[in-house]
Design a protein around this nucleic acid. Structure first.
Lengths: 191, 191, 191, 191
DNA sequence: TATGAATGAGACTTCATTCAT
DNA sequence: TATGAATGAAGTCTCATTCAT
């Protein structure tokens, strides 16, 4: 029985943290953030309340971590070189990865999108969301400008609305949503 | 010195009840059912907590009353003669009145549709909603049968989904939603 | 329609008051003083809450009035000439009337005795009850002294305990309690 | 640093639970179930309101646990081999243990019997009480049948009534009740 | 790292009592 | 005399969070 290495401890921690987040997401999405207690999450995850607080500072911290973790997955592919400028190739790359993510874990994303329809949850994160949205909106607007369109801002908003709508439709029925067709349609429209 | 008449009492009750429901709808929709306390509703409505319970048996009773009151407004125009059969004229009448209602009180309906996206709220009413939905679905299916379509049930579901979608889009932006155009489109499609 | 005379008004008031007390006694005895609300008493009595407060100052006043009204019925026959002295004839008269009252309204007395087993109720009236009990205990002790018994105070207490016990047994089964036999036994023992 | 062992937690729970039950019994008996608030019990027991709910699901659960815990103590000695049949030796054993229990903790049993005279309390437990009473009544009836008596059911009821009466008298004055004499009288009558 | 006992603020709800009419 | 709308205090219960072990 050699003692675990620091690396092993870190991995255990990460795994445990992910388990808690998955359990919480499941419960928050199906019952509602305000209805689900920390006790319930802990017992469903098979740990004690105390230990949960070892991983998350508060219930609010937990939901925020869940939200931004998902958001991070979705946006890490936009502007990969972090130069604040979007190219046609980057946009294409983003769309490919975005749909790939939905395809790989449809149930996760169904639950995830659900969170945004809970007013209280949305309120907790809306400030940081607004920052993220504006950042990308600006990049998109610039991008559409560069394509010589008439009204680049409206095009950017419309693009965002399209992604929203896709999320919504997908949430309602993740298994039967025609991901490939929709992706191709978008690629055709924008790339 | 003489006590209020029965009529006076009835009027007081109806006015107050409506006031409470309006206040509650506003708060529930913007902050979330679980986050809004009875205290908050009462103080916003300018009454005591106790009085609210004079009008509603419980918080659950309050939200249910709000939900079914709205639902009643929406469905009172379907099958007006209550014979369980839908005619082309009745469908037309329904669509006209439905859009008319949205047009007259867009803010009310925006808040109202919002409620359906709160998991806890939906859970509270889903049983009775299912009954209502099935009733109308059956009538619609029969109606489409009578029009000689190939797959009347799918047509009925599709029609319902259209109304859902309209509610959703309308919710997002009630003032700018092209109600007239959408209504005409529907009338053209179905009547 | 000649206007009611003052006398008539007074009678109406008395009747109404008695009705409220009877209703309240019934409810208090069967469900418990603390469980029964003023609202329930009023609606069961067919009047409004407000009117009830026209007859009784408070819920406490109501139960006290009920208790002392019954106690008054029971004790009005003891020491009828109010001279603080009990004679053999007065004791006999008291026993006769006491049993007569039980016989005439067994259900009333069943409910009435029940009240004394509710700690909260008893606490509300215990001070005045103690005064009454002591008064009669003293009279009884004096009476037993005059009969030349060895331990008159114990005899007085024992007599009181007998009446208590009779009340208790009677409460459990008022219709089948052998009132006559018990009365005769007492008359034989004490008169 | 290491967490408490399971055994330690169990001990803490049992001790606390007993403390709460003892405090509650004291207060319920002296003031009445409906008058005593959870707050009062908690503060008298030196704990927070919240903690009480860690041990009991509700105020009703608390009183029921108290009642059935006492009832269990009283009845565990009846039919010790759980064969549904009462023998002369078992009856004797039961009476010995019953009186022994009263003798060891007279104040506890005084409070305990008091609960049964509170209408609301009795209502909460009457169903389960009826089941228990009927079980023992049946066993007693069978027992008296076996002794060749004329009317075994009446004998069984009478025996039960005797125990009731003993409880009542004992409640009124637990310290001076002649437990030994009464026990011997019963043993002489029934064994 | 891990547990669950313990706290305290705040939620829902009830009800005796008041008061305008 | 009579009504019931209205109040506010107090009760039951829940739960995020802390902490000794």
């Amino acid at each position: 029985m050699s003692p675990r290495t620091e690396q092993q401890f870190k991995e255990i921690r990460e795994t445990r943290k992910r388990e808690i987040m998955d359990t919480a997401l499941e419960l928050f999405a199906s019952e509602g953030f305000d209805v689900i207690s920390i006790s319930k999450i802990a017992s469903r995850a098979g740990i004690s309340k105390g230990l949960l607080y070892n991983y998350f500072d508060s219930k609010e911290d937990l939901i925020k971590t869940i939200i931004f973790s998902g958001l991070d997955s979705l946006t890490r592919f936009a502007d990969p070189n972090k130069d604040g400028v979007l190219t046609r190739e980057e946009l294409k790359y983003f769309l490919e990865e975005f749909f790939d993510a939905l395809k790989k874990e449809p149930q996760y994303w169904r639950l995830y999108f659900n969170l945004f329809f809970q007013p209280h949850v949305l309120k907790l994160v809306e400030k940081r969301i607004a920052v993220i949205v504006n950042t990308y909106l600006k990049m998109l607007t610039d991008y559409f400008s560069s394509t010589g369109t008439e009204d680049p801002r409206t095009d950017a908003i419309f693009f965002g609305a399209l992604l929203d709508g896709i999320g919504f439709q997908f949430m309602a029925n993740p298994e039967h949503f025609p991901l490939e067709k929709v992706k191709n349609k978008l690629l055709q429209m924008y790339c």
